[in-house]
Design a protein around this nucleic acid. Structure first.
Lengths: 243, 243
DNA sequence: AAGTGGTCTAGACCACGGC
DNA sequence: CCGTGGTCTAGACCACTTG
């Protein structure tokens, strides 16, 4: 369960506008009301409206033209990922037009490899929890997601862990840790036997790999994530405002 | 030549702070002056300072902690790309710690394929300009960059085109077009014979491909770009604030 | 308790585009 | 010319962390 924190006004405005875009109130290519009109209508200052509009523009939902107006981007349906959300696999699947779901595969304890110990600032051989999950797009298995976390950080009995939660909630609930920032490496690799067991496609084909390191607020590494998927099925596409 | 437009105060503040971070005035892991101190020192309002800090935080250069302070990210040297700059190949190379340079390979005119015509909203067979360039990291050829642009958009004699310019400047100077936003697809593929001629590595190995569509302000497609590189040499890594 | 970043306001002026 | 978005200011209050 996730506690509902009262969101900032700017975030609420952002959600209202996004809902209008997605709901067809503001049609693709059309001009939306001006900043002053929105601030009047919603009863907030123009600065607050601008905060929300800036977020929408950064993610390519709208295009802003000085001296003219703000327009709904006609190409929003061709993007599947958004900045600040590159690691959100469910959203990536939804952005591709499928219904996302998660299957919990396995959880095991094992000592850290040399490389893992290096990245996580541990002693080699220290115990890790390895979480393996499979993401589905509709009924199709599309993303194999592995996460490794030092066992020493665990605050709750290992049996309690719900493998279907968002990775953020897993950290918060069972490790009492908040993630402050993440570092993601986007790589190209080939589908190997190990993963081929879960993902479709012939072995040896090119696939995308997202390697993520999670850090807490004091810049200490919390965990590693490796997500692989076939990008001929699931597209990783980003919209960016140019300036 | 690029006209120097006087930059906004917020951008200037951003540059000053980034210079201090890169120059070691603000050391990795250390706390930088508070917003009030910076606004006093630089003689700008706190809101302007915050605009600059928000940009730095979005790109992972700094970490902000409410009730505590703002800290220089210790892991900035592990990132090579930044949001809003995913298409800037020279910066990607520099972010990996190499000196970038460009070699102009070829420019030819040919009719559009069916797929190109579809994406660029042209008739099949309409004439295109194909620009092929090679990016170097120090002395090593690392990125093969192809761009195709409708010939009908060209405003200057084709012989004048300087193939070593930034793609943005090519559009501005020879096509009199400003790019408003871009849509980038990140894909995994294998090194084929065609490209293998220019890039090192054995044929058949997995490489990254960035496919970009450039749009002008009225949402009309301007051009296509395909950039491929070996991600075992050049890493595509992004830092993101979580929240 | 003091200081930090987070949020919001009201108002001002500018640069640009369309009419 | 007018309305748009772009920038900046000065000030206020809140939420949070640390000592």
């Amino acid at each position: 369960m996730r506690i509902l924190q009262s969101k900032s006004i700017a975030n609420q405005v952002d959600e209202i506008l996004l809902e209008r875009i997605r709901g067809g109130v503001y049609l693709p290519g059309s001009r939306i009301p001006s900043e002053s009109e929105l601030s009047d209508e919603l009863g907030v200052s123009r600065a607050t409206v601008r905060t929300a509009l800036a977020k929408l523009a950064a993610n390519g939902f709208i295009l802003r033209k000085q001296g003219d107006g703000t327009y709904v981007n006609e190409h929003i349906h061709e993007t599947s990922a958004h900045f600040g959300n590159l690691w959100d696999l469910a959203e990536l699947i939804a952005g591709n037009g499928y219904q996302p779901s998660i299957r919990f595969l396995s959880m095991e304890r094992r000592p850290a490899t040399e490389k893992e110990a290096l990245v996580l600032a541990l002693e080699e051989g220290e115990e890790l929890i390895c979480l393996r999950r499979l993401f589905y797009a509709d009924q199709q298995a599309v993303i194999l997601a592995d996460n490794v976390i030092p066992f020493s950080l665990l605050c709750e009995p290992i049996e309690k862990i719900d493998g279907k939660l968002h990775i953020r909630d897993i950290f918060e609930q069972y490790f009492h840790q908040k993630i402050s920032f993440v570092l993601t490496d986007i790589r190209s690799t080939v589908l190997e036997a190990d993963a081929h067991e879960f993902l479709s496609g012939e072995s040896g084909r090119a696939i995308l790999q997202l390697q993520t390191i999670f850090y807490e607020k004091n810049n200490l590494p919390l965990a590693l994530g490796v997500n692989i998927f076939d990008d001929s099925f699931l597209h990783l596409s980003l919209a960016q405002a140019w300036n």
